[in-house]
Design a protein around this nucleic acid. Structure first.
Lengths: 219, 219
DNA sequence: CGCAACATTGAGAGCCATCAAGCAAAGTGG
DNA sequence: CCACTTTGCTTGATGGCTCTCAATGTTGCG
């Protein structure tokens, strides 16, 4: 299991971790966990794409993250989830009940350290996100998202210079603090400027990664 | 020492913690820690006000937090600071060298848990912030900040229905993703709507906390 | 084929940024 | 003590970016 959670773990320790894991399969659009509910488990997607969001009673929502294989959801020492998560595409997910996971982490210092480091990575990503939304204009926010997605492309497929975006324009808009129309216009802007092309709406091919990275810079 | 870091600690354990702490005094406007530098210590302000920010080479900056007594800066398992921090007013700060703090946390499980819980509180606050910047308009973002500050007012002085804002309008603007002019207009808007009054520019008196909380809602 | 869902584009309005001027408070020096 | 400067806040005018409302285009599916 190639995962940040298993860094420096002995094989026997990974076995212990897997022994208490459950496997769950979700259809596209299924809820994985709900904001405000008891934080009773942690999750690791094995495949597919997922979305994390927070919504208010007013109906507004902020998309917090787009997840995929190797990301984590649900790590928390508070007893309620701070957000909801659902699948964008059919997904297989590993699930650890909190009542089993955290006691095991108590006995395996390396696992505990890994949890801490993952939490730190999450914070780091949210700070980047905050900077992008607070300081950038529409097309630069989109560049930020595209750069984030590009960073997640495996080495093996980087030569295609492209990413897949399994989410809808409205999801991207709610991630970037824009409407779906402005998001669509931001795509057009980057297309007109020659930075990208979009063979279809869910795929983006990069033509100028340097310029894209400049736009996406978050300090 | 009334602090989240000491929750459930034995007196003897608090003594151990204090034994490895340093006291540092900063003038107003002094840098406490710098983005990108080695994360060699954690800090706890004892008094005064502090500001945390991230800046990009482009000159843009995003203010990440306004701190005061009881907040923490520098907790991180990465080896570089993700942000800078400086004082807004003269401050006395407790400082723990990382090389002493983390080993102690290894021997005191309660302390370790407290660090984890504090990190979680930080994440929770940043998610609120992200929602406010991503989804709200200028005057509602300001209401969000004012509500945050109000939550920090000690019970003993709540009857004054007021908060002090030791930072400048430009700082508030960079916190809310607005210019200082728009920030000033947001103050005027809340004033005109009868929600607040400002005896002087650094003090806000609340006239309708219910309406303010509605505006500030972040899910 | 026809429908449904999503994306794109257009027109107009509104909110916020920019540029600029006026004010108020605090500090400085003659 | 008071002119003068400095710093920060407020307000005004204007332009531009984004939102809203609307229509059109595209893709996939029953």
């Amino acid at each position: 299991m190639a995962s940040d959670l298993c860094v420096d773990l002995l094989d026997s320790e990974v076995d212990q971790l897997l022994a208490i894991a459950q496997i769950r399969d979700f259809d596209a659009g299924s809820q994985i966990l709900a904001q405000g509910r008891e934080a009773d488990a942690v999750y690791l997607p094995l495949n597919g794409h997922q979305l994390v969001e927070r919504s208010a009673e007013s109906g507004q929502r902020q998309v917090l993250a787009f997840l995929q294989r190797g990301d984590y959801i649900g790590f928390s020492t508070s007893n309620r989830f701070l957000y909801s998560a659902h699948t964008l595409t059919a997904s297989r997910v590993l699930r650890w009940p909190a009542g089993r996971f955290y006691p095991l982490a108590e006995t395996l210092p390396t696992l505990r350290d890994n949890v801490g480091r993952i939490s730190n990575q999450v914070l780091s990503k949210v700070l980047d996100h905050l900077f992008a939304i607070g300081q950038k204009r529409a097309h630069a926010r989109l560049a930020f998202l595209l750069w984030q997605q590009w960073q997640r492309v495996p080495e093996a497929t980087r030569d295609q210079m492209a990413v897949d975006l399994p989410m809808r324009r409205a999801d991207i808009g709610d991630y970037l603090g824009l409407t779906l129309e402005t998001t669509s216009r931001a795509f057009s802007r980057l297309r007109d400027d020659g930075l990208i092309s979009t063979p279809h709406s869910q795929r983006v091919v990069f033509h100028d990664l340097t310029a894209l990275r400049e736009l996406a810079e978050v300090g």
